[in-house]
Design a protein around this nucleic acid. Structure first.
Length: 605
RNA sequence: GGGGACGUAGCUCAGUUGGUUAGAGCGCUGCCCUGUCACGGCAGAGGUCGCGGGUUCGAGCCCCGUCGUCCCCGCCA
């Protein structure tokens, strides 16, 4: 194929088929770069040697589909192109067929500059011809295959589950499919195969997996599409660690398939509480140092002078290798931070300014020492003026909302940490991909809270999903009833570079516990039966302990491809408004179709 | 649902304080060219300045609305 010929092929006669990437017309000599999935080869057409082929080449244009037959020749002295893999050779075209013409494309797949997304998505077939995209989908295919092979070798059975299933009101909004046969009734597309995979465990398939399409009718983000692909798995009699080892195993294999040798990289583990306290987020980006609480460094006196609330944490963090900021840049930064925090009682403490006042020098030193300690733990480097230090203090008399949720300040400062990291990403180089294991920082987050307080409805909701098992201790201790906020779930997330790759849990396998959880979520037994009766029934027929996880294949590939949007690794993605610009979906349907489904549209006020 | 950025030639973009005929690069069309590889040279075509309204003697530029794309918050068990 076009990317495969080398100087060792010299002398052989070949036929190449592909698209005209570029044409360079020198009059009696024409060069055609012919492109296919594997690469590009230069074809030379000489008017004297092959007048017919040359004449056809004159008519050829970008993106014409051609077939060229000719002899492979090593290029002469000084004619090789070191920038091309096939640059040592060329094919001397003796016969050229124009298999198909092409309209002038709205943008060229050969161009380095890429068009705006609207045009790319509308002409997706042209966009997908670009080398970059071809590469992404090759990675995707290899990764999926590696995972499939790994799981099958580990004794997992691939089983498909329905796309048309039953609507479950919990969680994300469902995509609904109207039933023709049952007027007014709807199927729902699965948000995940959750209940089916648990039933498969009850059915005795002790290790199940599926590369499954899932559907969620929620608003999109760069890392969220309405339909996406999960590597879904479940097994019987697992401990958390059993699941972790399986996932770590297939990630190693998948990354290897994509050309990244993770070796024996540590999959760090921390609890949800630790993650919030150290990073202010449940999916910490471990490519950056953690936050540190500096409140112990401030004496009561200093707090008074600096107007710092004594009851709340003083959080500091560094963004390494930002480089020294100019005075103006520094001022702008401080204003920006103060501006965004002004309404919630947080203030920026400028460590370098502290040093200018003798009374505060010891404090500045103490803070610097703590930040240094953290940075040494992180990457072995001392904290220097090259690193950006940010210290955020709470003013006394802070807004009441904090009193209900002391984690609020951690989360808020944690968000700032990410914002600044992104802002200085190019400068500090921590996010620059090197193609080695060091680019990828994995993390398991465990012990998620079981319940989440819903301020609007004044109820406790399931933080994960209602089939998640609480810690055994929390069942026996009675916290399930008395102290829902403190109940920990046997739920875990796998996080990579600040992106949640997957989420799983050990499930409830006892009908009485399941019923108890439904009750604790404010569901009466009747309601639970109405929604999940079939599942409660199943639990009563000998359910083994089981658990599993689901990982976003799209996100894994996105990170491996170094892309910043899922659209780069999904062949036919949708826009932020969930529209497919190529096929133009969704569309209205005919009156006839609507009638068949017993549907009528109404205008919403 | 909310906030922000963007929308000018096929593509990427510039367009000053509101002022005559709206520009560049790439691409495209024609002609020339035997060693280019982002080929080169000459000539040329190509515009509903997203759309609608308003202000003004005059709007690509100001105001209001609207549509589209992207990013973020909410939402995503």
């Amino acid at each position: 194929m076009c990317g495969e010929l080398r100087s060792s092929d010299a002398g052989t006669t070949v036929t190449l088929m592909g698209w005209v990437n570029r044409r360079r017309d020198h009059g009696n000599l024409i060069f055609l770069d012919v492109r296919d999935r594997t690469g590009i080869t230069q074809i030379v057409l000489d008017k004297e040697a092959s007048p017919e082929a040359h004449a056809k080449a004159e008519a050829a244009r970008s993106e014409y589909v051609v077939a060229v037959t000719g002899k492979v020749r090593v290029r002469g002295q000084g004619l090789a192109n070191p920038n091309m893999v096939t640059g040592d050779i060329e094919v001397v075209g003796s016969e050229l067929l124009l298999l198909n013409e092409a309209k002038t494309p709205p943008f060229s797949p050969a161009e380095d500059a890429i068009a705006n997304e609207e045009v790319r998505l509308k002409y997706r077939y042209l966009d997908l011809r670009r080398v970059e995209m071809q590469k992404n989908f090759a990675v995707r295919s290899r990764v999926a295959m590696a995972i499939r092979n790994f799981l099958v070798e580990q004794g997992f059975l691939e089983i498909e589950t329905p796309f048309m299933t039953r609507s479950t009101p919990e969680g994300a909004r469902d995509y609904l499919v109207p039933s023709r046969v049952h007027p007014g009734h709807f199927y729902a597309l699965p948000q995940s195969p959750q209940i089916f995979k648990q039933i498969l465990m009850i059915s005795g398939f002790d290790k199940y997996f599926q590369i499954a399409r899932c559907f969620r009718d929620e608003d999109l983000r760069a890392d969220r599409q309405p339909e996406f692909t999960q590597i879904d798995l479940e097994m019987t009699f697992p401990r958390q660690e059993t699941i972790f080892r399986v996932v770590e195993g297939f990630l190693q294999t998948a990354f290897k398939a994509a050309g990244v040798e993770l070796g024996n990289q540590q999959f760090v583990q921390m609890t949800y509480d630790q993650a919030i306290a150290r990073y202010g987020i449940d999916k910490p980006d471990m490519r950056l140092p953690a936050m540190v609480d500096l409140s112990t460094e401030l004496t009561a006196e200093l707090r008074e002078t600096l107007k710092v609330d004594p009851a709340l944490p003083v959080l500091g963090f560094t963004i390494p290798r930002v480089g020294e900021l100019s005075g103006t840049a520094r001022k702008a930064l401080v204003n920006e931070i103060r501006g965004s925090f002004g309404d919630c009682g947080l203030d920026f403490l400028d460590v370098s300014r502290l040093r200018t006042n003798e009374a505060f020098v010891p404090l500045a030193e103490a803070i610097a020492a703590k930040l240094t300690a953290e940075q040494i733990v992180f990457n072995g480097e001392n904290f220097t003026t090259e690193d950006l230090a940010v210290v955020i203090t709470p003013k006394p008399g802070t807004p009441a909302k904090w009193n209900h949720d002391p984690q609020w300040i951690w989360k808020r400062v944690g968000a700032l940490r990410l914002e600044l990291a992104k802002k200085y990403a190019d400068k500090h180089g921590l996010f620059t991909q090197t193609g080695t294991a060091a680019d990828f920082k994995f993390l398991w987050v465990t012990d998620f809270p079981m319940y989440e307080w819903n301020e609007e409805a004044k109820t406790w909701d399931a933080a994960h999903h209602p089939f998640t098992s609480p810690h055994e201790d929390d069942i026996t201790s009675g916290r399930l009833v008395n102290d829902k906020g403190a109940v920990r779930a046997l739920a875990y997330d796998i996080v990579l570079n600040g992106t949640e790759l997957g989420s799983g849990s050990i499930r409830i396998h006892r009908q009485d516990v399941q019923a108890e959880i439904f009750r604790s979520l404010g569901m009466t037994d009747e309601e639970a039966r109405a929604r999940f009766g079939f599942f409660l029934d199943a639990l009563e027929y000998g359910t083994p302990p089981h658990g599993g996880i689901a990982l976003g294949l799209d996100r894994i590939v996105m990170i491996l491809a170094g892309a910043s949007s899922l659209r780069e690794v999904i062949a036919f993605p949708k826009t932020a408004k969930a529209i497919d610009l190529m096929v133009d979906a969704p569309t209205p349907v005919s009156e006839q179709q609507m009638r068949e489904l017993s549907l009528r549209t109404v205008t919403r006020s």
